[in-house]
Amino acid sequence: MVLTGAVRMSITGYSRRRVLGATVAGVATTALSGCGLFDDEPAPPEQPDPLQPLLDEAVALAASYDRAVAAQPGLASRLTPLAEDHRTHAAEISRLIGKTPPSAGPSASPPVGAPAETIATLRSAEQAAQKSAVALCRAAPAERAALIGSIAASRATHAEALR
């Protein structure tokens, strides 16, 4: 017990520790109320939404198409619609999980040391992304299953389009 054997404060009758503790608690409550939370529990660390990886993949895939088109403009007519699909997915997932869609523009620079994108690397990236979307769809609550399923199917059609 925290307050065992505490010295009584002469005027208030509260122990010094209790007074100190109350003050600390008051400060903590004030700090939390700044976040709009008015209970005494500390805010749990924010868990990323299970769809965050799906969003990250969509953004990364769109950027890799942009890099491929920047390197080989002749591929633009074939690859740009696929990049647009991924941007549409990213916007939809962002809306669902309450995030601002990341704005990776066409000028997004490749990670340092990244190999050049080819049709083959794009295709295997789509296949990997389809697999992870399928796994997410299987685990998803009912209200998200249709959207994730469509995104998985779209990624499969992209892999087909790159054959």
Binding site: P81, T88, G149, I151, A153, S154
Partner: peptide, 11 residues
Amino acid sequence: VSPVTLPFPGR
């Protein structure tokens, strides 16, 4: 037919 894909198949 172009484009060959849809963003949300099944929708």
